[in-house]
Amino acid sequence: MARKNLVVIALALIVAGIAGLVYLASIPGYVPGIRGPGYPDTAYPVNEDTLEADYESNGQMIYYTGYNETGQRIDTSGGPHWLYVHGGSCVHCHGEDGKGGVPVMMGYVVPADITYEGLISDEHAEHEPYTDETLRRAIRSGIDPEGRPLDATMPRWDMTDEDISDLIDYLKTL
């Protein structure tokens, strides 16, 4: 009798799970596990419409899409696996306002506040304030101002000097 009840419960849970997936799939623009509070409505993968959107600067385009103004995808190493599979950019972890605060998909790490004001503040308990040069090193190599590695969920971005300067200029506007 108990075994029969377990089978019924298991089937009910499977049906409920399928119904939930059907419901989520019916939401326009829903991409499983990618979006959450504070994240933009940019669809995966980035497409021509996204690249032709009006960005105020190359740095903003990089922040939102992971592509530069020439349409080149900026390569990464490290970081979450979904970044390689679906694409992604700074905004997908740090949010539109750059303040982070929401754990990265399938992880527990809470992305840091990367607003320029937050980065250069003396209030960091865990490291010295960033400068433009230490910020470049953090973005490219995943090293904080004191020479320690950032968490492995932070991708290492292979950016040109121009692209990284443009991105830092954009961070200064957040």
Rank of each mutant, 00 (worst) to 15 (best):
M1H: 04
L6Q: 03
L6K: 06
V8W: 02
V8E: 03
I9T: 06
L11T: 13
I14Q: 00
V15L: 05
A16L: 15
I18D: 06
G20M: 14
V22D: 12
V22M: 10
L24S: 14
S26Y: 12
P28D: 04
P28I: 02
G29E: 00
V31M: 04
G33T: 00
I34M: 03
I34P: 11
G36Q: 03
P37L: 08
G38N: 01
G38L: 10
P40G: 02
T42Q: 04
T42G: 01
A43R: 09
A43E: 11
A43T: 13
Y44E: 14
N47M: 02
E48W: 04
D49M: 03
T50Y: 02
Y55T: 14
E56A: 15
S57A: 06
S57E: 06
N58R: 02
Q60I: 14
Q60C: 09
M61Y: 08
M61H: 07
Y63A: 10
Y63H: 12
Y67R: 09
E69I: 14
E69F: 11
T70W: 07
G71V: 06
D75K: 11
G78T: 12
G78W: 01
G78C: 06
H81N: 15
H81V: 15
H81P: 15
V85M: 02
V85F: 00
H86Y: 12
G87Y: 02
G88P: 08
G88S: 05
G88N: 04
H92P: 09
H94C: 07
H94P: 12
H94V: 14
G98S: 01
K99F: 12
G100C: 08
G100F: 06
P103R: 01
V104I: 15
M105E: 11
M105T: 15
M106R: 10
G107K: 01
G107I: 13
Y108P: 04
V109Q: 07
V110T: 14
P111S: 01
E117Y: 05
G118Q: 02
G118Y: 04
I120N: 02
S121R: 02
H124C: 05
H124W: 03
R136I: 15
R136C: 12
R137D: 07
A138M: 10
I139D: 07
I139Q: 06
I139N: 02
G142H: 11
I143W: 08
D144V: 11
P145W: 03
P145S: 04
G147K: 08
P155K: 04
D158P: 12
T160E: 10
T160R: 06
E162H: 13
S165Q: 13
D166A: 10
D166H: 07
L167N: 05
L167Q: 00
L167D: 03
D169F: 01
Y170F: 09
L171T: 11
K172P: 08
K172T: 09
